[in-house]
Design a protein around this nucleic acid. Sequence first.
DNA 1: AAGAAACGAGAGCGCTGCTCTTGACGGACA
DNA 2: TGTCCGTCAAGAGCAGCGCTCTCGTTTCTT
Lengths: 230, 230
Amino acid sequence: MTASRTARERVRAELTREITDIARRQLATEGAGGLSLRAVAREMGMVSSAIYRYFPSRDDLLTALIIDGYNALGAAVEQTEAACPPDDYLGRWLAACDAVRDWAVAHPHEYALIYGSPVPGYQAPQDTVAARVRDVAVLSRIVSDAWQAGAMRTPTTEPPAALDADTAVFRDLMPGVPDSVIWQAISAWTALYGWVNFEVFGQFQNTIEDRHTAFGHSMRLLAETLGFTQ
Amino acid sequence: MTASRTARERVRAELTREITDIARRQLATEGAGGLSLRAVAREMGMVSSAIYRYFPSRDDLLTALIIDGYNALGAAVEQTEAACPPDDYLGRWLAACDAVRDWAVAHPHEYALIYGSPVPGYQAPQDTVAARVRDVAVLSRIVSDAWQAGAMRTPTTEPPAALDADTAVFRDLMPGVPDSVIWQAISAWTALYGWVNFEVFGQFQNTIEDRHTAFGHSMRLLAETLGFTQ
DNA sequence: AAGAAACGAGAGCGCTGCTCTTGACGGACA
DNA sequence: TGTCCGTCAAGAGCAGCGCTCTCGTTTCTT
């Protein structure tokens, strides 16, 4: 309906895309703190105030980049996992972990934007919530599939009763999976991102050099704890 | 010798301390990005350029705060762990984990400074290295003590041979501990900070509310994987 | 064709980190 | 005691930032 109502709207969409593209490039080279509306405008041959027609503030531009980041990471994980044999649950787990790490290492500043320290004064709007869960949804689905296929051990340690309410959100993500496994999965989830954080944020520098191998081993240990039997 | 050569030097040391104190307060309220030399100077009743007599740049002030942060976290973990019965290895592990989390939650911005996304354009100087290892040294010592006391299971999964070189650094931290346990410990270490990152950086918001309980459960699972038998 | 909405350009405000110069002060030495 | 050099705070100033407001133009709508 609105296909061509818009010589203007088409230009607007195009310019908006160009702004985010330049901003993403700037983000990749300078980091989140170095993202400057004036620099974006300069590179576009615009005057700085014109940018505000498209993004009312620097935070709004950041929000757009954050949503893009979540979606890019989510898509990468989804694609990688989809290419695995569905009944190779351990393989799917390891592939998904690898995908997270690969994307993060390839896009460190974007990763920092979505999983690093929050930008000061910036409050993530609700728009980001939908895009936020794609990666964890994949991981959850692997666990859920593996459990329902009987390819996981039953853990020996039950979560405390106090966690019952907090488990609800994850029961929806992993239908049919017992709470004990859910909390194992949550632990594995945080451990995965803990590793990636350390690696991307330079905590392994001068310490662990063969990071890909080390990551793989760590994820394998996590998978063991999680209880993949295959 | 230099005890009182210094009406001047004493004042200088005092002012330097006052600057870092104010900067730390500002860091706590505004975050790393909001740390402003001019604001510090204003609060001290000084003119902004005078600060540069004490810290040649904003980055140098940040470095001082980072070193302080590492030391504060390290000291907190050391003290907490030292108060535990030495032969209660699981207790020492859980207490040390709790200490890390407690400090991080109490000082989120300082934590972000040392374990969050690196400040753009800022390169951590070598001065920070010494203070950096205090927390991981404590965790390593617990594992090492537990192993030597025979209070840990032997893991079934050996690390790949390619990791041999990278293991060297950790062998010094955990003398006598086999490589398989060392890599379990490294995994637990990253998992611990993965959780704390998620919690401090707001990733658990609207998801996990009873974070203290959840954290305790997760650390207990880690301890199980690590193999504390007691 | 007329009115409304959207747009780019420009000036400007207050803030930042940082530099340079100037004049005052204090400790060491003759 | 007097001199002299290093240290210091202060101030002005530069370039950059996010953001706001106004103004004249272009584009869409009716």
